[in-house]
């Protein structure tokens, strides 16, 4: 990936001109910073978009004061958060309290490493790409549990434990749904999965009814994994104040927020890559490298918008309903899809 980024933007030439030798570690490091830049810009715009979407759905205007149409509202928020006093409660476990936001953000950013932006434009083109993505996103769970336990606050602990139970439960239907697609593609590499979908309208989605159901299951499970409504029990404002980040302020809180929006993008990206053809055009041809990035981001943004839309449309689940939906509805259906798709692959 680093070759492409550096060549496209001319930064490689700049570094070479500065006297950085060929094969130096500097090139990949500089290239790997680009997803971070994207993530920050995305989070800034996504928070703004979320406010505007919620406002329009509720027939309000949303932020209008900071800049034209309130465009700089999120930037102002970030500036405010940087200046905020950092409070570590006396009762807290200082080390866990500090490590939690670092772990949560690093887990999110490490998942971007295997994110398929375009053909030959993947941070690390692992042969176990999708498996790595599912695994590394679990790092967030450890971070949330640390935050909840480290805060030594009742709301935080409740939020963290609920969130852990929810995320680990919904990881199983999500994994099985992805597995249904793997059965068809026969590879775990992200680019391999996407290349398999060449020539298909909207990728694997409409190839068989099992894959379509698996896609819906993944969509529901991914909502639960990023703690979005209707599965936002861990942060239920009306009963838990703020959930696991009740005690966090300033920059640490900002990191949780950044990771949350990053995860929204990543789960959408996985859904797009596995079921909707990733960086391929919707009619299944291979675009140029740059257009591939555009398609990938556009498709992912559609699902990010879908998540926002749901948030302001649906009410929140109750804990027992949440567990019922996961263990007694989604997992059996996901098993049926997996077996059905495997039978289709072998016998049809």
């Amino acid at each position: 990936m680093h070759d492409l980024v550096l060549k496209t933007l001319g930064i490689g030439d700049l570094l070479a001109w500065l006297g950085v030798p060929d094969g130096s570690l500097v090139y990949p490091v500089v290239a790997s910073v680009f997803p971070l830049v994207f993530l920050i810009i995305f989070a800034l715009l996504a928070v703004y978009a979320e406010r505007k979407v919620s406002a329009l759905i509720q027939n309000r205007l949303g932020p209008m004061e900071t800049g034209p149409w309130g465009l700089f509202q999120t930037t102002a928020d970030i500036l405010k958060l940087i200046q905020k006093e950092d409070i570590t409660p006396k009762a807290a476990d200082k080390i866990l309290f500090f490590v939690a936001p670092v772990l949560v953000f690093t887990g999110t950013y490490a998942s971007l490493a295997a994110f398929p932006w375009s053909s030959g434009f993947v941070g690390a083109d692992l042969n176990v790409g999708i498996f790595y993505l599912l695994a590394i996103s679990s790092l967030v769970v450890a971070g949330l549990l640390m935050a909840g336990w480290g805060s030594n606050n009742k709301w935080s602990l409740y939020g963290a434990v609920r969130s852990t139970a929810q995320i680990v439960s919904y990881e199983i239907p999500a994994g099985l749904a992805v597995l249904t697609a793997i059965v068809t593609t026969g590879t775990l590499s992200m680019n391999g999965i996407i290349r398999h979908q060449e020539g298909m309208w909207f990728g694997l989605l409409f190839q068989s009814p099992f894959l379509f159901v698996a896609f819906i299951i993944y969509l529901i499970a991914s909502l639960a994994e990023v703690n979005r409504t209707p599965f936002d029990l861990p942060e239920a404002e009306s009963e838990l104040v703020g959930g696991y980040h009740t005690e966090y302020s300033g920059m640490k809180f900002a990191m949780f927020f950044l990771a949350e929006y990053g995860n929204m993008f990543i789960v959408s990206g996985i859904a797009v890559a596995v079921f909707m053809g990733g960086w391929l055009t919707p009619w299944g041809t291979e675009p140029s490298v740059l257009m591939g990035v555009v398609w990938m981001i556009l498709k992912s943004l559609f699902f990010v918008f879908f998540q926002m839309w749901l948030r302001w449309t649906l009410p929140r689940f109750r804990v027992d309903q949440l567990m019922y939906l996961c263990w007694k509805v989604l997992i059996p259906i996901a098993f049926a899809c997996l077996i059905g798709q495997a039978a289709v692959e072998v016998y049809l």
């Binding site: 094969g23 997803p35 950013y109 490490a110 490493a113 690390a124 990191m255």
Partner: peptide
């Protein structure tokens, strides 16, 4: 621009950048 980093080496680079970004923010 050939170097000896494996694909998992890039993953490590991403993790280091993640941690450093949080560090710089703090």
């Amino acid at each position: 621009m050939e170097n000896q980093i494996t694909q998992f080496g890039y993953v490590l680079i991403f993790m280091v950048i993640g941690v450093s970004f949080v560090g710089i923010g703090f």
